[in-house]
């Protein structure tokens, strides 16, 4: 059976919260997975008090070593999972993440902002 790295939606109505899971492709969305790799909170959190850049952020918790392992043994990430994994350099970016990042860097350098150069691929 095909293994997939995908999101399982938890949380309440209008308050989505996702587990990033490794599961068999044909099992139900919220069924018990093989492993929970992490979580993804898609609701932007207000910027932290000490943050000088003051941008809202989305929290992602991820065990990147395990994610690498599962990708290595042939687990197929879903589109969203691909997008998230490519942000930390586990996969090649497919969904114009790099393009957006370039745009952001351009805009920020134009505004002489303090954003450090990105470490990701």
């Amino acid at each position: 059976m095909v293994l997939r790295i995908r999101l399982a939606r938890f949380g309440k109505r209008h308050a989505p919260f996702y587990n990033i899971v490794v599961a068999h492709a044909r099992t139900a969305r919220n069924s018990k997975p093989l492993e929970v790799l992490g979580t993804y909170n898609p609701i932007p959190q207000p910027p932290r008090p000490g943050d000088e850049r003051g941008r809202p952020f989305k929290e992602i918790k991820l065990d990147s070593a395990r994610a690498r392992y599962w990708v290595g043994v042939g687990a197929q990430p879903s589109d969203t999972a691909w997008r998230l994994l490519s942000m930390v350099g586990i996969l090649e970016p497919k969904f114009r993440v790099g393009e957006v990042k370039q745009q952001v860097i351009k805009a920020d350098s134009a505004a002489k902002s303090l954003i450090p150069p990105t470490q990701t691929a």
Binding site: E35, V36, P44, F57, K58, I60, L62, M87, I105, T120
Partner: peptide, 25 residues
């Protein structure tokens, strides 16, 4: 924490360990 800038918000990645969930998860 590892921050990936986005257009409207940042994505903040925190590294965790799967082992923390224990045997029964």
């Amino acid at each position: 924490l590892r921050t990936v800038p986005g257009r409207r918000w940042d994505f903040v990645f925190q590294d965790i360990s799967v082992e923390n969930a224990g045997k029964d998860g």
